[in-house]
Simulated scan of single mutants.
Amino acid sequence: MKLTAEQLGWSVHGRTLLEDVFLDVAPGQTFGLIGPNGSGKTTLLRLLAGLNKPKKGHVRIDGQPLAKMRQRHIAQSVALVEQQAETTDRIYVREVVALGRTPFLSALRPWSTHDDAIVDQALDDVDMTHMAGRLWHTLSGGERQRVHIARALAQQPKILLLDEPTNHLDIRHQLSILELVRQLPITVVISLHDLNQAMECDRIGVMDGGRLIASGQPHDVLTAQRLQETFGVHAHVLDDPIDGKRIMRFRSAI
């Protein structure tokens, strides 16, 4: 599915958090969002997911305005993994992941073995099958993050939005989750802090001060000048001697 944002704006109590954002993500593309803390990445993702209604502009899915779509239809097409999504309920890991199937259930379409298989696969994809019977409150932060991602995978979305999904994950699970996301045959918008991880995206966009100030191929966008102006760091681009991929090293510009 194609995801488009047109002149998107958002404000709270007169304070502008997002302004004139234009975004165009092609079907099957992985688009990385980068930017300093407070630059508007989370706000943009929530608008793209339909959790907040823009004060200005429109979000479209395959040309259809998100504002005119039924919530159930949106939930069957778009999944969002937020940074924080806590609960005080006594709930088991498998039950959390099974919530991803909710948009597809009804009186005429009850839970089935097909749903069980989807939940099983989602748990396996994030290496949490062995913890399916654990209570939510006993999990570490990284384990909870993996369960959130499994819940989104169980939703089988056409568009997957991820807000810093590698937060709290150890390096092994960071790499496995990012590789899984890259292999999904769906449209992905992923917010990342690690700029070397962002280099693996098909395209990236740079958020700063609530605006999308640049977007395009990673090597075109992540220039030394832009990194210094936006992040306050000096960057050096190197070629990995093992696979030839471009990697960046940083030092403070202060």
Rank of each mutant, 00 (worst) to 15 (best):
A224K: 13
H219C: 09
T166D: 01
P185M: 10
G210R: 13
T223L: 01
Q183C: 12
V206W: 04
V221K: 00
R172S: 11
L192H: 02
E200C: 07
N196F: 09
P185H: 11
T166Q: 10
R226E: 04
P218K: 06
Q225W: 00
L162Q: 09
G209W: 10
L161C: 13
S215D: 15
V147P: 03
G142L: 14
E143K: 11
L153E: 06
I213F: 01
Q174Y: 01
M207C: 07
G216A: 12
S176I: 08
R151H: 02
L222Y: 05
S176C: 03
A150I: 08
E143N: 09
A152Y: 12
D220F: 05
L161I: 09
M199G: 03
V181F: 12
I190R: 01
T166H: 10
D202V: 07
A150F: 13
I149P: 03
A152T: 13
E179N: 15
E200Y: 10
P218T: 07
R226H: 03
H168M: 09
S215A: 14
G205K: 01
L160N: 05
D194C: 01
A154P: 05
R146V: 13
A224H: 13
Q174P: 01
G205C: 08
Q155D: 11
E179H: 14
R182V: 02
V188L: 10
L161N: 11
L162G: 02
V147N: 03
V206P: 07
H168A: 13
L175A: 13
A214F: 07
L212R: 01
I204Q: 02
I149N: 02
Q156K: 15
V147D: 00
G141D: 10
R182C: 02
V221A: 08
N167C: 03
P157M: 12
D220I: 07
I186F: 06
R182Y: 03
G209V: 07
E179D: 15
H219L: 14
V181P: 06
E143Q: 15
